[in-house]
Amino acid sequence: MSGLIACHECDLMQRVGTLPEGSTATCVRCGAILHKRKPNSIERTLAFALSGLILFGVTNAFPFLSLKIGAQVQETKLITGILELHKSGMSEIAFLVFFTTILVPFLQLTGILYVVLSVRFGRLYPKFRRVFRYINLLQPWGMMEVFMLGILVSIVKLAKMAKIIPGISIFAFFALIVVIAAAISSLDMHLVWEKCDQYRKKHR
């Protein structure tokens, strides 16, 4: 059964041989992407995940947006709105925002780092398979790029009332969106599972 996979969207079986680096195999019947072969997948993903963690720290430590009214400047952090919502009794929404803009990106970055380091050093860390499965499950719930659109709308909305000054954190946040997307797209899922399989067979 080597090289044979079934399309996850139409179930058609087809043979996907070893693809040249950087190429994509699509389903002949429905057009779904079956496999993308990434050049230097592990090293690239490692670099993106590490820089992502640094950007994540900056994003959460520094002021996000500041509001200037007269001579008075008020600073807010990424978490401020979430805490305010929680205080006013809207804990469900506070949690949803926290989950999609802070928790999921953090779990994605640490999870990817864990998996990639494991493959890089040729040994399976504990719960490797579970961590890698959960990374894929979390992916639809990371919504930082949607939050970015929310920031733009809010700035326009408040423009008449006060002056909004973007903080360092907002630039780090923007870079973080790009870096997480790059880390996810450079991680070759099939390659990681193959390595995992090889290792398990060798050490059985």
Binding site: L65, L67, Q74, T76, T80, G81, I82, E84, L85, S88, I93, V97, T101, V146, F147, L149, G150, I151, V153, S154, K157, L158, A162, I164
Partner: peptide
């Protein structure tokens, strides 16, 4: 998200 940001600011 807009509501969250407005609440904060």
């Amino acid at each position: 998200y807009v509501v969250t940001i407005l609440v904060a600011l």
